[in-house]
Amino acid sequence: MSGTELWAVIPAAGRGTRFGGDVPKQYLEVAGRPLIAHALQALLAHPRVAGAMVALSPDDARWPGWKQWNGKPVMRCVGGGERADSVLAALRALPAQVDDNTLVLVHDAARPNLRDTDLERLIAVAEAAEHGAILAAPVRDTLKRAGEGDRIAATESREGLWRAFTPQAFRRGALIAALEQARIDGVVVTDEAMAMERTGARPALVEGREDNLKVTTAADLALAEYLLSLRDPR
């Protein structure tokens, strides 16, 4: 496949406190490899992704020391206390040849089941869209708003609502500016699209597979193991 090179960014400085345990969730093993290894494989298997920048905690002693994957560079930098801080640090640390117009894919370290078909469609849409694009899926469940004592207060319309996945794909310069502005404004953004939205951008939604799950609980880890076993029975 021809086209300009892309780069990947993986924020992995978090400790996965919601998961529990002593091992940060990105290093939990599933299908024989840490979650972050599956994330790197999914990204760097794409012919146009030239390399990856991983943002790590300054005291991370579990990083395996990978310097390349599929013959492509894997670089690391020091991340921050929030996801946005780590993404911003990684964007700034990209090699000099990665200019502000380069499309960058930001992907969760604990999202191991990204399919190449979803990645291909995301890249195609993001390159054509003015404000980038994200993988997502429409909300299909009925939504309830909780009131006092966890009793149902209301049923909310799911019309037009989507669940945001990763990767999320934006031009490097625009995303840096959006994340920097959010920091100045004191706003903690929970994903890159939120930062872009605050600037007036309207990223495109690319419907992706529902099994592109993010591991946040022990049940998620078991499900990820099962899903990956379906892809490679070995």
Rank of each mutant, 00 (worst) to 15 (best):
D118W: 12
A96M: 08
V139R: 02
E159D: 12
A174W: 01
V98R: 04
G160A: 08
D116R: 06
V139G: 05
L105K: 11
V98S: 04
A110G: 03
R140C: 00
F170P: 12
L161C: 09
R111W: 02
W162R: 13
D100N: 12
W162E: 11
R158Y: 03
A137N: 06
V98E: 07
D150N: 15
I152Y: 03
D100T: 01
K144F: 08
N101G: 07
D141L: 13
E148N: 11
W162H: 10
A110R: 04
A137Q: 04
I123A: 07
A136W: 04
A137Y: 05
L143V: 15
A124M: 00
R172F: 07
A128M: 02
R115I: 06
A169P: 01
L161M: 14
D99A: 02
L135S: 07
D116F: 09
I123Q: 07
A154I: 01
L135Q: 12
A128T: 04
K144N: 05
L94F: 03
G132Q: 15
V104I: 10
G160K: 09
D100G: 11
I152V: 14
D118E: 14
R158I: 11
V104E: 00
V106D: 03
V139F: 03
A96V: 06
F170A: 06
D100F: 05
D99S: 06
L122R: 03
A154V: 00
A164S: 09
L105M: 09
L119S: 12
R111V: 05
I152N: 06
T102C: 14
I123F: 09
L135W: 11
R151F: 15
R151W: 13
D141F: 07
N101F: 06
T102F: 13
G132T: 15
E159F: 14
I152R: 02
V106N: 05
V104S: 00
H131D: 15
L122V: 07
S157A: 09
E127R: 03
A126M: 12
L105F: 06
F165R: 05
L135A: 07
L103T: 09
Q97G: 06
E159H: 08
A96D: 11
D108R: 01
D99P: 01
E120Y: 08
P112K: 08
A124H: 07
T142Q: 02
R140Q: 05
P138Y: 10
A154T: 01
L161T: 09
